[in-house]
Write a protein that binds this DNA or RNA. Structure first.
Length: 426
DNA sequence: TCTGGGGTCCTAGGACCC
DNA sequence: TCTGGGGTCCTAGGACCC
């Protein structure tokens, strides 16, 4: 049997997560804001129907949202991450070949013969996920990942499919492709869509029928792959064991403008601590560290000035105090008095598996790195049990103007004991 | 006043080498 | 005034994804 791909995609994921713990939001327009309550990053169907645009700056649509009684929430990534994990666990339980593609999407490869149709299998997956998590999903099926993505999009848009569409069993796939804009294909972004349209290619069907070598010439190998995938030739394989990350980063815009080195130090230390924890959770150590700094928009100018410094560490590490030390060194070299800053961040690169990293015992204190390891392990365990930042490093401070604005956040229902939802029987 | 954050891949161009 | 061919490595920037 030829491999068939399915894409399972959670509907309006962030809005759906909020609804699971706040059923009053059911049937209501809901939007979720980016960090710092900056712009809109998720919308319920009702909000989409009102014409609320993805990525719209919140301050521009605030009045409109109020007039239409739209529920506005700050993002709650602890909740979404945990709900995502629950959904993915179910998929892994029910299917052998699963690739978690993003926080709300997974590819499944159907290879074995089944006594049910694939569409029937997909419907039962959908039912189980809904019953056990409360999250609605749509499933698209096709001979390539790109076609599965397309099928998913169609399944979501047209309620008559009841959440599942197998594009290869459709009597007229060309008519489906003709109904979708070229920019809606996986891999064709804003810029490429514009250029394709300028060449008279405006639908998915037209893109499928483009000469692949022309595509290769004008849109590089990625464009070529997309055309082949639309023709049913699989060029993007499953990745069930995701390769190790090549970089790990943490950055945030400030809640308010920041001018003092002391505050920058605190913010940067916090971001380093977050990113270092991410390194440890994946068993990685970094050999290189980059700090970047972004100024506020200059008056009458639309560009942000950014500066960055990179330092190579003498020894690859995931030890928070060590990494904070080097990061603060980079910052000190960049800081300019009298400048309004808006964002700071850290990027770790040159990542290697901790087990493979060569450890040079320090001549005068050979047990030092072992002690650092067990300290970090303890910190991680305490924070996992009692909540983020229960144990923290002095350099991180206790929050100031640099902390982001999140005025409308729901509780961490599933990840903090003190925020568990209460159920009262009467 | 107010527009997120974290990733990956690809290409062009420069430096360098033989 | 002329000025090869081929290779590697690195970086910056662009484009894309969610």
């Amino acid at each position: 049997m030829r491999a068939i791909f399915a894409l399972v995609d959670c509907n309006n994921f962030y809005a759906s997560c909020e609804r699971v713990f706040n059923p009053k939001l059911e049937g209501q327009p809901v939007v979720v804001l980016s960090n710092n309550d900056g712009c809109i990053i998720a919308r319920s169907n009702e909000a989409k129907a009102l014409g609320v645009k993805m990525g719209a700056p919140f301050f521009q649509v605030r009045d409109f949202l109020r007039e239409h009684a739209v529920h506005v929430l700050s993002s709650n990534y602890a909740l979404y991450g945990d709900m995502s994990h629950r959904v993915m666990t179910i998929l892994h339980r029910l299917e052998p070949d699963v690739e978690v593609y993003s926080i709300d999407e997974a590819f499944i490869r159907f290879t074995q013969a089944r006594n049910q149709s694939l569409v029937a299998c997909a419907h039962s997956l959908r039912t189980v996920v809904r019953r056990e998590t409360g999250i609605p999903v749509s499933i698209g099926i096709g001979p390539t990942k790109t076609l599965a993505k397309l099928a998913n999009r169609l399944a979501k848009k047209d309620a008559s499919w009841d959440g599942v569409l197998d594009i290869s069993s459709h009597p007229d796939p060309d008519s489906l492709m003709a109904s979708v804009e070229v920019g809606d294909v996986w891999g064709i972004g804003h810029k490429s869509a514009e250029r394709l349209k300028a060449s008279g290619i405006s639908t998915v069907l037209a893109l499928k029928d483009v000469d692949p070598s022309w595509m290769r010439r004008h849109f590089t190998v990625t464009g070529f792959r997309t055309v082949m995938e639309l023709r049913g030739v699989a060029m993007v394989p499953m990745e069930e064991q995701p390769p190790d990350r090549k970089s790990v980063a943490c950055s945030r815009s400030f809640g308010e403008r920041v001018r003092s080195l002391a505050e920058l130090n605190e913010a940067l230390s916090s971001h380093v601590a977050t990113a270092a924890q991410k390194l440890r959770s994946q068993g990685l150590v970094a050999s290189c560290l980059n700090v970047f700094l972004m100024t506020a928009r200059l008056a009458g100018d639309n560009v942000h000035f950014t500066d960055n410094r990179t330092v190579e560490l003498p020894e690859a590490s995931s030890h928070t105090p060590t990494l904070i030390h080097y990061a603060l060194g980079c910052l000190k070299g960049m800081f300019r008095q009298g400048t309004d800053y808006r964002k700071i961040g850290v990027v770790f690169t040159g990542l290697v598996r901790e087990a493979l990293a060569s450890r040079q015992p320090t001549l005068f204190d050979p047990g030092r790195s072992d002690r650092m390891d067990s300290l970090m392990k303890t910190v991680d365990q305490v924070n996992a049990r009692w909540g983020r930042n229960t144990l923290r490093f002095g350099a991180m401070g206790f929050g100031g103007r640099w902390q982001m604005k999140q005025g409308r956040k729901s509780a961490s229902f599933t990840t903090r004991w003190d925020e568990l939802p209460l159920v009262r029987a009467s």
